[in-house]
Amino acid sequence: MERKIHVFSARMNSETPPPHWHGHRDRLRTKLLKRGANALDDYEILEVLLMAFIPRRDVKPIAKALEAKFNSLSAILAAPSEELVKVDGIGETAAAYIKAISELHSRAGREEIKSREAISSWSALIAYVRRELQHEKREQFRVIFLDRKNQLILDQIMGHGTVDHAPVYPREIARRALELQASSLILVHNHPSGDPKPSRADIEITREIIDALEPFDISVHDHLIVGTSGVASLKTAGLI
């Protein structure tokens, strides 16, 4: 009797249809390969990504949950791993892969501006700093050091702060520029409030840095302020 029950159960299991998302994965891969990534919606791109390291689960609800929590692809890539794992279906492995893809994106951006003059590839530079800083929750002050050909030497964080302030020391920036033998630099920081409009303090610290660098014949090309709504240039605004 036990043997008959066992055989019957096995027959029933063998006839169980595969989960609906098996066919969906195949269709999504085919769509990507034949029509290109531009044919996919944002959540579908996320699905393709998640399919690689979540093999036995419908990943569409996970992709939708990521979108709902972070509101944009850039915010998902910028999110800390401890925030990513709060989404149902995202474990430490999935979070690690997402952060690795984010870092690949950042390194590709640095390569793009490093291979050409930063001044002549301004749109690439703006895209790079916005990608790096628009979703930062704390204010961060960075300096992009350039050589005599205006090519990237280093993008370095020179100050970490709170939601509305990051300490900046003009003499420290001058010292670092001399160490790197930089000929010029671009100042960059973010406004976690989202509004990139320069404050009086932003203008004053920019002028202090310019004054600190002047004796060494090191110029400041611009000071870029990054917010979720865009990037403001003090030079374009006539403030430096």
Rank of each mutant, 00 (worst) to 15 (best):
D147N: 07
P61I: 04
V188C: 08
T162H: 04
T236K: 01
K137E: 09
A166E: 08
I144S: 10
S74W: 01
R29I: 03
E67C: 11
S184Q: 10
V168E: 11
S14E: 10
H165G: 04
E111P: 03
R107V: 09
R56K: 06
A94T: 03
H105T: 03
A124D: 15
S121W: 07
P192F: 01
K149C: 01
S115F: 09
A95C: 12
A78G: 06
Q134H: 02
P80Q: 08
Q156E: 14
I205W: 04
M51Y: 09
A212K: 03
R171A: 07
I205H: 12
A78H: 03
D41T: 05
A174T: 00
K114I: 02
R130L: 01
A100Y: 10
P19G: 10
E172R: 13
S14D: 01
L77T: 07
I98P: 13
R56G: 08
E111R: 11
E112K: 15
R175T: 05
R175Q: 13
L73N: 03
A237E: 15
E172T: 10
A108N: 01
P198D: 08
I45V: 06
L50T: 08
E92P: 02
P80C: 09
I209D: 07
V129S: 03
S219I: 08
A201K: 12
D147T: 09
R200M: 10
E92Y: 04
V48Y: 05
L133D: 00
I225G: 01
A63S: 07
L185W: 06
A124S: 15
H221L: 14
R116G: 06
A63E: 01
N190S: 12
T30A: 02
E83C: 11
N38T: 06
A108C: 06
E204K: 09
T93P: 02
I90Y: 03
E179H: 10
G238V: 03
L154K: 06
A63C: 09
D42T: 04
S115M: 13
E103I: 01
H223P: 07
D164K: 12
K31R: 13
D202M: 08
P198R: 12
T93H: 12
R176C: 04
I90A: 00
H160Y: 05
E136C: 13
R116T: 14
I205E: 06
